[in-house]
Design a protein around this nucleic acid. Sequence first.
DNA 1: GTTAAATAGCGTATGCCATACGCGAAGGGG
DNA 2: CCCCTTCGCGTATGGCATACGCTATTTAAC
Lengths: 247, 247
Amino acid sequence: MTTDERDLGRSLKLLWGGRTRPGRGRPPALSLERIVAAAIEVADELALTEGFEALSMRAIAQRLGVGTMSLYRYVPGKSELLDLMLDHVMDVPDETGGPDRGWREILSAAARQHWRLCLDHPWYPFVDQSRPLLGPRSMLGLDRLLALLRPSGIDDRTLLMMISVQNDHVESVARRYVNERRVERRTGVTTEEFWAAQAPTLEKAMNSGDYPVMADLADDTFDFSYEQLFEFGLARLHDGFAAHVDL
Amino acid sequence: MTTDERDLGRSLKLLWGGRTRPGRGRPPALSLERIVAAAIEVADELALTEGFEALSMRAIAQRLGVGTMSLYRYVPGKSELLDLMLDHVMDVPDETGGPDRGWREILSAAARQHWRLCLDHPWYPFVDQSRPLLGPRSMLGLDRLLALLRPSGIDDRTLLMMISVQNDHVESVARRYVNERRVERRTGVTTEEFWAAQAPTLEKAMNSGDYPVMADLADDTFDFSYEQLFEFGLARLHDGFAAHVDL
DNA sequence: GTTAAATAGCGTATGCCATACGCGAAGGGG
DNA sequence: CCCCTTCGCGTATGGCATACGCTATTTAAC
C-alpha cells in the first residue's frame, strides 16, 4: 500500500486542523479523530492477520457502524487517511532522563522507541513513506529529538541525515520481523519449517557446484534473529556516526 | 505492492526450473522467460509514470499481445511473477578488479551496483521483500559477493548482516529518490515548488512557538539530495563496520 | 412557527483489479 | 486418422476506491 496519489495540500490542511463548525446544517455523527482512531484499530488487527493491504475503507466504516461513503465526508480519500494515521501514532521522545545523555544514548532510545512503534502498529513499516509528510506529532517528535541532540554540537543537517538513516534501518528490519510473525501466525508454519520444506530444492542447487561459497556456509550461518539484526545495524550505524562526529 | 500471499513452493519451483516439455498437446505460444521480460519492461515504464502499483496482469498480457488469462498457464499468480522478476533483474557483482581489494571497497561497489539496479528498475525498491526468496541469480550474486569478502577474515554471519543492512539502506533511499522523480515528472511540480506551496501552513506552525527547534533551523538544513543521503549512510555504515571488524 | 440553506449519511454505479472455471482449438503419439 | 493432452482465453465473481446525487437532518432567517 502506498500514500501515493494523495493530495498533499488536503492532507496538510487536515493534519494541521483549521476545521470549522458552521452552525448550519446537519451535525456530523462522526469526527476525524474517531475515524483515524478506528482506522488504526482495524489496521492493528489486520496487520497481524490478513496483512496491511487488507485495510479497506469498508472495513473502517464497518468498525464505526456507518456506511462506507460516509467516511468521505471527513477525508478526501484513503491516502490522506493514511497520512493522518501515520502522524497519529507517532510518539514524541521522552524528555525525561538526565540532560547529560550523549547523542548516542539519545539516538538509541529513539531507535528503540521507533522499533516499539513498529511492533505496536505492525502496519506502520508497510506504509510507503517515500514522500514523507510532516504532521503536528511528527513535527513535535522531530523538534524534541533535535532539541535533545543539539547540545552534542553536531550540525543540524548531519543530525537529520543520522535520524533518517536510522529510521530507515529500524523500519526495514521491523518490516521483515512483522511479516515473519504474521506469516507464522497465519499459516502455522514456522520459519524453520518453511526452510526445511524448501531444503530439497536448495540442496540440489548447492550440490550443483554453482554456488561453492553458499554450499560451504555452516548450517547456522543464517540463524540470527531480527532483533539481533536490529541491534547489529544500530550499533554499526552509531559507531559510524561516532567516527564521523567525535573524530 | 507486496509479494504477500504467494505460494513459496511454487515460486521456488519456477525459479529453479525443472520445467518439462511434454511432447503431447498444443505447444505453448509463450514462455516463462518472455513473460518475465515483458513484465519487467512494463514495470520499468510504469514505475516512472503511474507508479509500480499500476502494474497489472492485463498490462503485461497486452504488451505480449495475448489474453490476460493466458499468463496463468505459465505462472500461478502475480506474486510468483514478482518473485521471478526480482530474481531476474539481480545482477552478479563484477569479479574483475584486483583480488587485493579490501572489504570496504567491495561493499562499496556492491552498494553502488544495487543503487544503479534500483534506478534502472525503479519498481524494484517498492516490491515488498519482507520475506526474501533466493532465486538462482540472487543466489549467484550472494555467492560471488561472499567469495570476494571472505578473504577479509570476517565471519560469514557478520558478512551476511552487513550485506543485509547495507541493502536495506540502499533500497530505502532509492525508494524516496525514485518516488520524488516520478512525482515531479508526473505532476510537473518540483520538490522545491511543492514545499513552497506548503510554506504558509508550515509557517503558521513554526510561528506557533510549539516547535522552537524546527523554527530555528536554517532554511537550507533540509537541502541535501538523496545521493548525498545515500553516500552519507553508506560511509557511516562502513565506518561502523570498520570499528567492529578491524578493531 | 415556518421555511430555506447548508450539511451529513449513504445507496448505487463505475471502472479498476486478481483470478477461478470451463470451453473450444491445436498439435503429437498411437 | 483420431484421441488425448495441453494451451488460449472469454466470461464470471468478488473485491476495491470512489464519483454522484438523493434524502434526511439541522439551524438561521424571516
